[in-house]
Design a protein around this nucleic acid. Sequence first.
DNA 1: CTTTTGACGCGTA
DNA 2: CTACGCGCCAAAA
Length: 119
Amino acid sequence: MATFDIYRKIYRLAKRIPQGRVATYGQLAGIVPGCTARMVGYAMAGIPDNERVPWQRVVNSRGAISLRGGSDSELEQRVILEKEGIPFNDSGRIDLARYRWKGPSLGWLEKNGYHTGPV
DNA sequence: CTTTTGACGCGTA
DNA sequence: CTACGCGCCAAAA
């Protein structure tokens, strides 16, 4: 099992995040076997051009955008998310209790070799 | 080879 | 609420 396969799994999973929902780094890491939150962030930073991953729907555990510091693309992503129907509160955070993605169906997880529940 | 860094998370103070 | 530390693991230096 090469690390390349893990990245592919992360991408495949992230592509399942529907519009109007968000997922956290830790959440995705908990679904992909042998993956950590840091690895998800690293994977998002290195998405190949041929892959179309909705990386803007992945936020940190606080419900805030965590882009490479100082970049203006952070504001850009917030605009995209708001456009997709996700509101930000006064602190610039998303209400994860309401907008967090529930994850793929159990059948999809089993079929593609992901974790199906809490580790 | 070793050290540092990074789109993270969580417990503690 | 903020600040700090540790754990996590893959790339880059």
